[in-house]
Amino acid sequence: MSVETMRELQAYGYFVLLIAMVVLLYGYWFHLKKSEKTGRRDYEKYSNLALRDDLRDDVLETVSTSNAKGSVEK
Rank of each mutant, 00 (worst) to 15 (best):
G70F: 00
K45Y: 02
T5N: 09
E61Q: 02
N67D: 05
V59S: 09
E36F: 04
D54C: 03
V63G: 02
V59H: 03
L24K: 10
Y46L: 10
V22H: 06
L17I: 02
V23R: 00
Y28A: 04
F15S: 09
M6Y: 09
T65E: 05
G13D: 04
A11F: 01
R7I: 06
D42P: 00
E36S: 04
G70H: 04
L18M: 06
A20P: 15
T38Q: 02
V72A: 10
G70W: 00
E8N: 11
V3G: 02
Q10F: 04
V22E: 06
D42K: 07
V23I: 04
A68V: 05
F30D: 01
R40W: 14
Y12M: 13
D54G: 06
S64Q: 10
L32G: 15
N48G: 14
Q10G: 09
L24C: 12
V23C: 01
S66P: 05
W29V: 10
L17V: 03
E4C: 06
I19E: 07
L24Q: 12
L49E: 04
S71T: 13
K69A: 12
R52N: 13
V63F: 00
G27I: 00
A68G: 03
I19H: 06
N48L: 02
S47F: 07
M21H: 08
L51D: 14
V16T: 07
M6L: 15
V59D: 06
D57K: 01
R40D: 11
R56A: 01
W29K: 12
E44N: 13
I19R: 07
N67I: 03
R52M: 03
Y26Q: 09
V59Y: 01
D54H: 12
D54R: 13
G39F: 15
E61S: 08
I19F: 05
Y43I: 11
N67Q: 05
M21A: 10
V63I: 04
S66M: 00
E44C: 08
T5F: 14
D53P: 15
E4K: 14
Y26L: 02
R40G: 08
T65M: 09
E73V: 02
L32V: 13
G39A: 02
Q10A: 14
S35D: 11
W29Y: 04
G13N: 08
T5E: 14
E61D: 08
S66H: 01
G27Y: 08
E44D: 14
E61C: 09
L32F: 12
S64M: 05
R41T: 14
R56T: 07
G13F: 00
A68H: 07
R56E: 11
S2G: 03
N48E: 10
N67S: 03
Y14G: 12
L51K: 15
S2Y: 15
D42F: 13
L9S: 04
W29M: 12
A68L: 09
